[in-house]
Nucleic acid binder design. Structure first.
Length: 316
RNA sequence: GGGGGCAUAGGCUCAACGGCAAACCGCUUCUCUCCAAAAGAAGAUUUCUAGGUUCGAAUCCUAGUGCCCCCG
């Protein structure tokens, strides 16, 4: 049993798309008796496999008398991956909640949790860098507000929650609607800064621009050869709407358009490269302002950081 | 060989009575309190070339160059 005052140690691996996060995660998990919590807003969905770059894995019965199954890749259990039906929505708040449970579960069995993934926002909510309001989505309200212009939404927010209105992006309907949702619930949002219950080691994979481009292209070619287009066709055939595929973004959005003949194969390839590149840059923009990240370029550097990190835990 | 048309940013996109050269996409950078692979913001970059007319030219005139079309 850990003492109440001792924080749980977390290893977090981030990096732009196709940078090799998953492989590094598995490598470190094997090396240091870890289990992986995937932090990827698309890999949570079942049947989104090739397009999300999900690791190859199998659902296996959990050992001992433990209930349920888990997703195992290369002998390493992965949590919060491949478990949500594609037609259902899974939010950052749910990830935050489920992630905490998963961490407790892993630590409870004496293992080290490694959070690995490309969705920076989700990771930040999980580790307490970015608190979120415990107000569930209100579909009816959202549908109602969706018809208003950002200007109208902003005006409403000024009345309901002037503090929030002060800082919000007044052109961004998504954010305005969510802010109104929270305001209507009559709950004061959590403080900007909260104390994290975790002790964290952030590891970020850096690549030169050329390397990033190369990896994206290579991975894209590989995924197309593996049948990424067929995967999207299958999803739609099984009842996932074009609209839903559109929401998934990137590969799913563009391939869905291709399947509806909005663009030919050549255009598709060019567009895919483009949006993946843009995505990778957006990811980097998110992490660039996180000073805690140790940027590394080889597994050896990561290994060294982890060794030191875990050694200092034991001393305490 | 003869006739006609077109030429505006990185772009098989595209606007501008002779009066501040716009838009869209891309590019660069940024934002982020439940759609985050989402959504939003800011910025850089342009009138084919050489002359002429004019207070003033992307716009009118002349020539050149390139592309397209028609007639032989």
């Amino acid at each position: 049993m850990k003492s109440q005052t001792q924080k749980i140690s977390l290893i977090i691996i981030v990096g732009p798309t196709a940078s090799g996060k998953s492989a590094l995660g598995i490598f470190l998990a094997k090396e240091y008796n870890g289990e992986i919590i995937s932090a990827d807003s698309r890999q949570v969905y079942r049947h989104l496999t090739i397009g999300t770059g999900k690791v190859m894995g199998m659902w296996k019965r959990r050992p001992k008398q433990d209930r349920g199954n888990w997703f195992v890749s290369d002998g390493v259990p992965h949590h919060l991956i491949d478990f949500v039906p594609p037609r259902r929505h899974y939010s950052a708040a749910e990830f935050c909640r489920d992630g905490k449970t998963a961490i407790a579960d892993i630590v409870g069995r004496g293992k080290t949790p490694l959070i690995v993934g490309g969705t920076g926002f989700w990771i930040d909510t999980l580790v307490g860098r970015m608190p979120i309001a415990p107000i569930p989505p209100n579909t009816r309200l959202r549908a109602h507000l969706a018809r208003k212009t950002p200007k109208q939404l902003f005006t409403q927010l000024v009345h309901l929650d002037p503090m929030r209105a002060k800082h919000i992006d007044r052109n961004n309907s998504h954010r305005l609607i969510r802010a109104l949702e929270i305001a209507q619930a009559g709950v004061t949002p959590p403080p900007i800064k909260s104390v994290s219950p975790y002790r964290t080691l952030w590891i970020g994979i850096t690549l030169t621009r050329e390397e990033m481009r190369e990896r994206i292209t290579r991975r894209l070619r590989h995924d197309l050869r593996r049948g990424m287009v067929a995967e999207v066709r299958r999803l739609h055939a099984s009842g996932v709407s074009w609209q839903r595929l559109e929401q998934f973004g990137l590969e799913y959005r563009l391939i869905a358009r291709h399947l509806r003949s909005f663009m030919d194969k050549k255009t598709l390839l060019a567009q895919l490269e483009r949006v993946l590149w843009q995505y990778a840059k957006r990811q980097m923009t998110w992490w660039r302002r996180n000073d805690s990240i140790n940027w590394i370029s080889t597994p050896k550097e990561a290994q060294r950081l982890v060794r030191i990190f875990l050694a200092t835990t034991l001393k305490k």
